[in-house]
Structures are given as structure tokens and as C-alpha cells.
Design a protein around this nucleic acid. Structure first.
Length: 628
RNA sequence: CGGGGCGUAGCGCAGCCUGGUAGCGCGCAGCGUUCGGGACGCUGAGGUCCCGGGUUCAAAUCCCGGCGCCCCGACCA
């Protein structure tokens, strides 16, 4: 497979430095008992590498650990991955993976491959440099902004660096799939993607060049898509589980990917950038962009503070909910927040949410089916004739669409009740306004769900948690197959577009998420399946012949047993080796020290638990027990 | 794209305010002692002080412009 891959590659890349793309595109090492040592060299000159010393010694592996946190790191995973010698930063959002980091990715990728293959996926490798036409054909060349790297080749031909591969996979499908008999297909790759993030951050959490497993399913109809989608759910559940990650599968916004249904796989960690709502009772879970919930009823207001009929009240210099609430002695939940936004086609829309709630712009945008932005203060004055802070929904010009959050409806949790709103007049608010009577807005789910809300399905109490997106799955439908003309003939000989799905996983995010979830003050505690090595073998005295002999035999015995072992044979003091062992975080440490003359070595799990003295011959068994 | 911070040895930092021979810790090299939780002593190497311009007898330091990196927000297919 390796040789044929190379042959194909070199033909295409003859005139350029073919090995650069080869390096980038070479599949990461398959690890495990059968793989490992000499299989992955991809250097100029190519060919199988010369046989290498069998044992993995620390003195030969490049592991530049650091005592101090790097100054530019904030996230725990960033600090530990840099300190542990897993990665180095080349530029903003561009990272080098060092041997240890690459091994971790290799293990993750291997798990991904096994699970993708198990659902019938087949692996391919797509270019990361695309002619712009392909993206023009789908319309995304114009739809996507400066987040796409764009460049020109020597002939001035516009090119792009791939942010994702829907177009190219659809292109391939269009060219090669002819008949319903060719379907279904699941094609995947583990490939570099480029996104010119406006702001890279968090070490390897949010970067501009990154590895991604992406797969694409091709089916004859939507029932087929359903099957492919569900297969991916199975594969993804297995992948994240095997990687030792705590994760949720949540409903997500299909967004610009198009299509109807989408889920995201989320690893809970404070380093994450997303929020999800979770119901512990029935398992409902959704990205906050989507999350439905039932608001807690508004607090009761003191009798007499809000009249039953609209009445103006002077509220000098009281512009915010907090100020008005305090000034009038009325709970924030009895106020209505009126927010003017502008749609992409410059139409004003007034959004209403309860005073103690937050408008979710994404939800509003979805309701309006276009992008929105908050109106500028002078636009507010121009359209409503009043300064921000006193805007209200009563008596707004006809051309302003008014949409209220559904919890404000008379049928909502607050029932039919009077609210306080902006007076649309400087320094004036309006008390006693009832929706349905004094105004009849459209209703929609506009508010951001929050902790303590009721689950819309079972009534349980929703929690909101911070999470890192590690994977996503989308039902694309015909969004790409139609413009890319990916059609096949069905049984009746009629041409129809294939139904697509697309599915992503960020291997480096799995790694970073695992570090965020599993570490202590001394370093990383890798989940067993994705650690760079299973065993960190410390030889306390590197000059001691007996220790050397025993360490070597232990290394071999462990490897024979299918375990990967890093032998720390460096001429360092014991403390240094222990500290590095803790920092690097392999699941088991085996220490060959003083008592080796009695035939005893130490075995200690990194995650905690007893350090035990074990006779040399029992080590493989004991270690296997710990890794089971 | 708005707001803030930083840029001096491989890494972490001081020096800048108040201009006058560029420093500390770690790391690195050599020698010696030490040797199961980031040892100690001695010796030594290592710098376009981010870049460009300006002020000045003199700029790491003051002024102007640029670049890079980090953080908060916006964005995130």
C-alpha cells in the first residue's frame, strides 16, 4: 500500500518537491503491536527506512521537556503539551507535532480507522490544494469570507487551501459514481485542513492548520442517508469512548453546512468554547445555539407596582434592565428587553426577550433565515426615534418586524400578565403592557437556555456545561450533490442526485481534550488507549550493568506482550526521570532501581493507586492487568 | 474587526519610568563531588535588546511607523 501510494504521488508531483506533500499527507503511524518501529519514514529519497535499533530509548527519542510553563500558554493542555515535549508552535495557530505528540495522534487515528472501517468506510487521501472553480461551483467560494486561504498559482489561476472537503468528495462522486448499484459509499480521509481563523487560541485547541478525519456518505435516498448517519453515530460513540474521553452527543445547528439534522460531539472542559444544555433526567442535550427549554416563571411583583393598563412612567437616565428594575422596584423578569437588530438586507427587526433573559442571536438569525447584527445606536434613533435604553415594542413603525420570545406569550410560563417596556420616548418607560392585547408580535424561541430551566421533554432541570467540540455529523442532503452534479441512475433509469452526509473529527482536539480532562499538578495522565507509550520504563542508574540488562529484558518482554514501552536510559538523576515520567503521563511506570539485585522492580500506575514491588518475571502480567 | 498586554541569550524574566560598557534563574559545554522525586561547586560558551526611521555626543531605554505573539470581545462552514 505504501509503495503504490508513493507511486501515485510522485507521478502527480514530479515537478515539485513531491516529498513535502508526501510528508504532510503520509498517514500517521499505525501503532499497536504489529506496527511501530521502522514503518514510517517519508523523507526525500523515500523507500523503506534502514532498520533501526529495536528498543525505544529516551536517549534516541526526541522529547524536549520543559521545567517552566511557556509564557504564551493559557490553556492547561497547551502548557502540558508544550512542556511534555509533544508539540511546538511555529506561528499563530500553526503547530509542529514532535515524536510524542505524533504518536498520540497516531494512536487516535488508528482507533478512528478501525471504527470507520468497521462501518464500511474506505480510506482515501484528498489534495489540500484545490482549484477555486470547485468551490465556485458549490457557491462557497463567495459565501465564505476571509477564513479561506486563497492564493494563485504561477499562471495566476485562483486556488484555495482546503477548509473541508465536501466539494472535492462530491466532485469525485460526480465523476465516478454512475449507478444506484454503486451506492452506498462511505469515503473518509485523515487530512490537513486550513482555516484562517480570525483568532487562533488555546494552543492546539483552535488553530489554522489542523488534522481532521472527515468522511462523506453517498446514498440513493434519504432513508439511505439515515442509515449512514446512524452508522456514524455508532462509530463516533465507539471512537470517543475508546479514546477515553468524557463526551456528549448533542443536537447542533447545521448552519452554513446546510441540511436538516446535525449533531456535535462535545468533550466537557472549561477550555471549551461551546456551551451545551443537558438534561440529566431524560438525556436531552443540545448546543446552546439550539437548546430549547422552558423558562422558570417570572418572579412575582409587588402589588400596585405594575398597573393593568399601559401607563407611562418617568425613568430619567435609567437605561439598563438593572437600572430600571431597581428604580421602579420591579423584578427584572417583569421587564421586557427590546433589541433592535438589522438583517443582512438591512431590514430592522425588534426582538423581545424577558428582562432577565438573554437574546440568542443565532436563534433569531435562524428564525429570520439570514444573518443579523445589532443595530447601531444612530440606526436605532433613526428608525425608532429614541435612544437605545428606552426602546419599546408599543407603537413602533409598521416596517419594523416585532418578534417576541415564546415565553412572553400569554400561553407561556408567565401567563397573561402585564410587563414594563421601554416607552419609545426619552427617559420614559411603559408599565402595564400586555402581549396579545397591546401588541401582537410573532413568537419564536429566541432566548438562550440556561441552568435551572426546565427540560422541554421531561420537565427535568437543565444544566449548562462548557464543552470542546471534538466531532460533528451533518446530514447534507442534496446541498453539494446538486451543484456538483453528483448524480446516479436509479432503478428506473432516472438520473438523481446522491444524498450526502459529512462527518468530522479533530484528532488533535481529542488529544487536547483528553489532557484538559485528565491531568494533575505534575502533568498529563493519558487515557490508556491514546498514551504515547503504554509503559514508561525508568532505569534509575543508567551506568549500572545489571539495571541495564534487566531494563532491556523488561522492555523486550513488554513489547513481546504487545505493549509499547519507552525506556528512559538517560544519564539523569532519578528525580528528573520521575518528573518527566509524570509530566509525559504514560499510564504505567516501571522503575528498575536498587532492589533489582533481589529481582524486584516497581510498578506504579500514573493515575494513582499503589506502587507495588514486583518480581521481574511478573512485570508484563502485572502491567497488563493495570492496562486492562 | 474593536479593546488590552507583551517582544531583551534556547526557555522564563529583570533592566526602560530617570539615555551612559546588557543582567539574573533555568538550560547548554568542561572538570570535580553527588546519585530514588527536577543536586552542588568551579570554569565557560551563548545577544542584529522584533524591524525601520527619528531625536541625541550617546538609544534596550525617548518619539514616529511597521511586524510578530498572547488575552478579552466579535467571528467560527
Amino acid at each position: 500500500m505504501w509503495s503504490s501510494h508513493r507511486a501515485g504521488r510522485s507521478r502527480r508531483c514530479r515537478r515539485t518537491a513531491w516529498w513535502t506533500s508526501c510528508l504532510q499527507r503520509s498517514p500517521p503511524p499505525a501503532l499497536g503491536a504489529a506496527a511501530g518501529r521502522s514503518d514510517y519514514r517519508c523523507l526525500p529519497g523515500g523507500g523503506p527506512a534502514a532498520p533501526k535499533e529495536e528498543r525505544m530509548r529516551a536517549t534516541e527519542l526526541f522529547v524536549p521537556t520543559l521545567k517552566e510553563d511557556p509564557a504564551d500558554a493559557e490553556a492547561v493542555s497547551h502548557k502540558l503539551l508544550v512542556r511534555g515535549g509533544f508539540v511546538r508552535q511555529l506561528a499563530a495557530g500553526i503547530y509542529i507535532f514532535l515524536p510524542l505528540g505524533w504518536r498520540v495522534l497516531g494512536r487516535i487515528n488508528q482507533i478512528i480507522r478501525e471504527e470507520m472501517n468497521a462501518i464500511g468506510g474506505v480510506e482515501v487521501s484528498m489534495p489540500t490544494l484545490h482549484p477555486a472553480e470547485v468551490w465556485q461551483q458549490s457557491g462557497r467560494y463567495d459565501a465564505i469570507g476571509s477564513e479561506m486561504f486563497r492564493l494563485k498559482d504561477r499562471n495566476d489561476r485562483p486556488m484555495v487551501l482546503a477548509m473541508t472537503h465536501e466539494e472535492v468528495f462530491a466532485w469525485l462522486a460526480a465523476h465516478e459514481l454512475r449507478s444506484y448499484r454503486d451506492l452506498p459509499q462511505i469515503w473518509y480521509q485523515i487530512q490537513i485542513k486550513f482555516r484562517d481563523e480570525p483568532r487562533a487560541k488555546g494552543g492546539i485547541l483552535r488553530v489554522r492548520e489542523f488534522l481532521m478525519k472527515d468522511s462523506y456518505s453517498f446514498d440513493l435516498d434519504f432513508d439511505g442517508l439515515e442509515v449512514s448517519y446512524n452508522k456514524h453515530i455508532v462509530a463516533y460513540d465507539n471512537i470517543f469512548q475508546r479514546c477515553g474521553l468524557k463526551f456528549y452527543r448533542v443536537e447542533s445547528d447545521p448552519g452554513m453546512m446546510g441540511g436538516a439534522t446535525a449533531h456535535e460531539y462535545m468533550a466537557p472542559t472549561p477550555a471549551g468554547e461551546d456551551l451545551v444544555a443537558l438534561c440529566p433526567q431524560c438525556g436531552y442535550s443540545a448546543n446552546l445555539e439550539m437548546a430549547r427549554s422552558i423558562a422558570t416563571p417570572p418572579e412575582p411583583y409587588a402589588p400596585g407596582t405594575i398597573p393593568e393598563e399601559p401607563a407611562e412612567v418617568e425613568t430619567p437616565e435609567r437605561r439598563t434592565i438593572a437600572e430600571v428594575s431597581e428604580f421602579l422596584g420591579i423584578p427584572a423578569s417583569s421587564l421586557i428587553k427590546s433589541l433592535l437588530v438589522m438583517t443582512a438586507d438591512e431590514q430592522p427587526v425588534l426582538a423581545l426577550v424577558r428582562g432577565d433573559h438573554e437574546l440568542h442571536e443565532g436563534k433569531l438569525s435562524r428564525v429570520l433565515q439570514q444573518e443579523i447584527r445589532p443595530a447601531h445606536p444612530d440606526e436605532v434613533r433613526g428608525i425608532l426615534g429614541v435612544e437605545v435604553g428606552f426602546v419599546g415594542p408599543v407603537g413602533v413603525p409598521q416596517r419594523v418586524r416585532v418578534i417576541a420570545d415564546e415565553c412572553l406569550a400569554p400561553t407561556g410560563p408567565g401567563g397573561e400578565r402585564p410587563y414594563v417596556v421601554g416607552g419609545n420616548k426619552a427617559h420614559v418607560h411603559l408599565r402595564g403592557v400586555k402581549l396579545g392585547r397591546d401588541l401582537s408580535p410573532a413568537y419564536a424561541d429566541l432566548r438562550e437556555a440556561r441552568s435551572g430551566d426546565q427540560c422541554p421533554f421531561c420537565g427535568g432541570k437543565l444544566g449548562v456545561e462548557q464543552v470542546l467540540e471534538v466531532g460533528n455529523i451533518f446530514k447534507l442532503g442534496l446541498k453539494y450533490s446538486v451543484p456538483m452534479k453528483a448524480n446516479v441512475l436509479d432503478e428506473s433509469g432516472k438520473e438523481r442526485p446522491v444524498v450526502m452526509g459529512s462527518y468530522g473529527i479533530g484528532p488533535a482536539r481529542i488529544a487536547a481534550g483528553a489532557v484538559e480532562q485528565c491531568h494533575d499538578e505534575r502533568g498529563i495522565i493519558w487515557p490508556k488507549a491514546i498514551a504515547p507509550f503504554d509503559v514508561y520504563l525508568v532505569q534509575v542508574q543508567s551506568q549500572d550493568d545489571l539495571q541495564t540488562e534487566v531494563a532491556a529484558s523488561l522492555h523486550d518482554a513488554l513489547e513481546l506482550g504487545g505493549l509499547e514501552c519507552l525506556w528512559d536510559n538517560r544519564q539523569e538523576r532519578a528525580g528528573v526521570k520521575f518528573a518527566d515520567a509524570d509530566l509525559i503521563g504514560c499510564p504505567v511506570r516501571v522503575t528498575v532501581g536498587k532492589r533489582v539485585s533481589e529481582g524486584l522492580v516497581e510498578v506504579q500506575p500514573r493515575a494513582g493507586g499503589a506502587r507495588q514491588e514486583v518480581s521481574v518475571s511478573d512485570v508484563p502480567e502485572v502491567v497488563k492487568g493495570l492496562l486492562a
